[in-house]
């Protein structure tokens, strides 16, 4: 048994090793270490907190069951993200069969970004967020996922390539196409959100 309580700074590799040796404390440490990121990622694909935590739990249990297959040739968190993205897209596929409308209840308003002197700002910000979110949610899954990983989770091209197991060139071109689709949808549905964008960079072709 590994004395992990006394080593909260244990590396991911040590934690994995300890979990494989049967340490429950190591698994608890791992969950605590990554729960924020996994729950945040799952939240991009879920309607509410309960559904989100159910999905995040499913992710951690998959990690627990498959941990012996982790080769250690990539960062642990990209391996974890891969499992989370797969679970989330499976969840989306199941949800789409039930025609769920994803993520409406508490999209959006971050009070820290609101202007205090404009009482209408929170409402406008929330409406904008809902409109943009609807556009992102309507994207095909591969475009949606890559935007989530880049724009919301702030992963680098290399990390995205590892998570999705694609080439960096594919990451770049897929991101470009995803952003192009978002821009086209915004200009079509909410042109007021992108004043002047329609005129700039008019090439707009897809790659």
């Amino acid at each position: 048994m590994f004395a992990l309580q006394s080593r909260p700074e244990s590396s991911d590799a040590h934690l994995v090793e300890a979990i494989l040796a049967g340490s429950e404390a190591a698994f608890a440490t791992l969950v605590e270490r990554f729960q924020d990121r996994v729950v945040r990622l799952c939240g991009r694909y879920c309607r509410d907190q309960v559904e989100c935590e159910d999905l995040a739990q499913e992710v951690f249990l998959k990690v627990f069951r498959k941990l012996h297959t982790f080769q250690g040739d990539s960062q642990f968190f990209t391996w974890l993200y891969r499992i989370a993205v797969n679970a989330a897209t499976d969840h989306l596929a199941r949800a789409s069969t039930r025609r769920l409308k994803l993520v409406d209840d508490d999209v959006a308003f971050d009070a820290r970004t609101a202007r205090v002197d404009d009482p209408s700002a929170p409402m406008v910000a929330a409406e904008t967020a809902v409109a943009v979110r609807a556009i992102v949610d309507a994207l095909p899954e591969k475009f949606r996922t890559i935007l989530v990983l880049r724009e919301f989770e702030d992963l680098s091209y290399t990390e995205i390539a590892e998570v999705l197991q694609i080439q960096i060139g594919t990451v770049e071109s897929r991101l470009f196409r995803a952003r192009q689709r978002v821009k086209e949808a915004m200009l079509r549905l909410h042109p007021e959100l992108l004043p002047g964008v329609g005129e700039a960079a008019p090439r707009g072709g897809s790659r």
Binding site: E53, D106, V132, E151, F152, V182
Partner: peptide
Amino acid sequence: AQRALLRTAAGSARQPSARFAAGVV
């Protein structure tokens, strides 16, 4: 500008509840 707009859609990220980790374990 488009990216800034996209990031507004990120909204306030969800946080795990206090008992989440214990529930998973």
